[in-house]
Design a protein around this nucleic acid. Structure first.
Lengths: 391, 391
DNA sequence: TTGAAAGCGCTAACAT
DNA sequence: ATGTTAGCGCTTTCAA
């Protein structure tokens, strides 16, 4: 208490308020406010504006955002809701968001949900109580009552990474179908015919879309589909990846390559292969999804579909800004084009390889084929530009 | 404008305010406020308190933190200032902070400085304008006028990772000296006699303390010191690590092991060794510092000194809470004990190795020797408990 | 124990 | 173009 009073006195002595600026400039506080705000500055004569700005500079005046927010219902802050910051996917995304928003004066409030919808609900309630201007969420489920409710309440938001089945939600994600096609095409070109898939959780768009695209790609490339080649993982974790591959192997079904639903599942495959003494890529090729930091340093370096995470973040930030400024614009979805990064974890299957054939090291990047070949996407205006969909 | 008005009306219709709760409970707003705040609830009769709480529950009342903050000068938010979230060190630290503070109702405002003191100053000014209750900073330099000023202004803060030369700043860091000793001791035990060091930036405590500790450890272990065995890196980056090792090699000085100032520098060593065809650990042993995520998956897996990053974050959060509640308590510094994680990047030097000797795989963890052996630290009350220093 | 009233620092409708 | 006034939603003296 004593200390609070002290702080208070210190603040009054040191921190100038709007009325101090106004007094120094010889105007009323309202005029000072108008002069200080670029949007309303034109309501004030050039000279007074000048005097006010000088006074503010002289006093080192910084407006109190709390007081402003109380009046305006805007806070210049946005909530970023992710499952877990220590998942290597998210830091680049968050940087992408921050690099766009922080120069515009926005602050980021970051929360981790650990994929727990209750925690998420509590965090979102807290963020809304704090009057964040908008939300960027990486936690969407295909069916997601929590987020549906936000949509109904017209909370400005943008989904990243994962989408919902419900239309009307703006989102920025990778073009999962295109990426899967690249990966499967690559494996087929290498000579693989029996390609397994570790599918991620089917209540997330990434899990479901990638599985569907895998089936579609096999069909498009003239390979028969065999449900025994699919193992379902209940979470995007290394442990589940190892479990999934073990399940496939223990089924006794034959395959020479695995398309893992994401890089963490692929890491799990590495673990299991080491445990069972299976050599990658000689005995089994692995393709991941995401191109997380560091997977290029693994042994063997992981062939994977690259999602431009930083750009997911920056595009989402721009999209949210647009939602804030033109809330009545129809929601858009951006599907960012993906690339396949070919590294050391894929090779021709043992049967079709010449003994002693030297493997090339280093990495190669493959882009998507012309997108109009795939029926489920709008053709982009420029090559490799994002695919826009009106929801 | 139109839309703002709309939002406003919606809010008034849907979001209950304190006076709504008060009216429903049949009391004055002030009474409702007292009843709702656990700290002041005792001023109110049990029955009225009960009625108010029920009314609040019935309406789904959530206090407006903005209005509260304007009155109380507290925001229940804290600023986290780090160089770059995409540096793999920081996500676990931030999670550690969040896991402690968010259950207590605090929000985290995260900013990236990219090691630019100007950006940092701007961000800190913004955080202070937003009235954060305190700061956790990972950006300290040994001489740091910016932070010194914060200290003078009695801004509640805690330093993490790096310390300052100026006394009086509470901090949570790893015990750099202890960790370096473990690493050097390990190399010497393996038979190394010529151990090089890639030193990090000397204006950071981590860079300077580790270099000093390296010299001290050589001396303690009876090895001569040779300045030619030290290369200085100007930043904690992979590129600088590669450059530093190249510099050492090009000097023509002989060495069989490198203690890298941190893991990123060690990664740079890996790059250069691959480039020059030097085998690790057969021709050169490498020790890193930090035990970042994924360095256990490199080929060879990196032997490194583990800093408990998550715990750095959680301890810092607790320390900041203490600073907030008892601001007049003297500042403490916590040096967390470190462990050496022995993996595949270290082995006996070529000269002392039996040809064909099978290397053991897997990893081993070594703890610090009793700390009282080292004169610069206070002995902990329990083994491996943090070292506390009054500043 | 409760109510009345003031005010945190700012912005915006209204008046001039 | 500028000043007056009210009020954002809450907490906290002060008085009863």
């Amino acid at each position: 208490m004593d200390n609070r009073l002290f702080t208070r006195i210190m603040r009054l002595m040191t921190v100038p308020r709007l009325r101090d600026v106004a007094r120094l400039a010889g105007v009323h506080a309202a005029t000072a406010s108008r002069a200080l705000n670029p949007a309303t500055r034109s309501m004030v004569s050039a000279e007074t504006a000048q005097r006010v700005l000088e006074a503010a500079a002289q006093l080192g005046y910084v407006a109190n955002p709390i007081a402003r927010s109380l009046k305006t219902n805007r806070t210049n802050s946005i909530g970023v809701v992710i499952p877990d910051l220590t998942n290597l996917l998210f830091p680049p995304i968050v940087r992408g968001i921050d690099d766009v928003l922080s120069p515009l004066g926005y602050s980021l409030l970051l929360v981790n949900t650990d994929n727990d919808k209750e925690r998420e609900a509590a965090h979102i309630a807290s963020l809304r109580a704090r009057q964040v201007d908008g939300l960027i969420l990486a936690t969407a489920l295909l069916e997601d009552p929590l987020l549906q409710r936000l949509g109904e309440q017209r909370v400005p938001l943008v989904l990243i990474n994962r989408r919902m089945n419900t239309p009307g939600f703006p989102s920025v994600t990778g073009d999962d179908a295109g990426g899967v096609y690249l990966a499967v095409h690559h494996l087929v070109t290498l000579g693989h015919r029996r390609i397994a898939h570790l599918a991620g959780p089917q209540h997330t768009s990434t899990g479901q879309f990638r599985l569907r695209a895998y089936r579609q790609a096999l069909q498009d490339l003239g390979l028969p589909h065999d449900d025994d080649l699919v193992a379902h993982c209940s979470a995007w974790t290394e442990a589940e990846g190892a479990r999934g591959l073990a399940e496939l192997l223990d089924r006794g079904v034959e395959f020479t390559a695995v398309l893992a639903g994401n890089d963490l599942l692929a890491l799990g495959c590495y673990d299991l292969m080491r445990e069972r003494g299976i050599h990658c890529p000689d005995e089994l090729s692995i393709v991941g999804f995401n191109d997380m930091p560091i997977v290029d340093k693994l042994q063997p370096a992981l062939t994977t579909v690259r999602i431009p995470h930083y750009r997911v973040g920056s595009e989402a930030a721009h999209m949210l800004l647009e939602r804030l400024h033109k809330p009545d614009t129809p929601a858009k979805s951006i599907l960012l084009p993906l690339e396949l990064v070919v590294r050391g974890s894929t090779a021709p299957p043992a049967s079709s390889r010449r003994p002693g054939g030297a493997r090339q090291s280093g990495e190669t990047t493959l882009r998507a084929p012309a997108t109009q070949d795939r029926p489920d996407s709008v053709s982009p205006s420029r090559p490799h530009s994002p695919i826009l969909t009106e929801l």
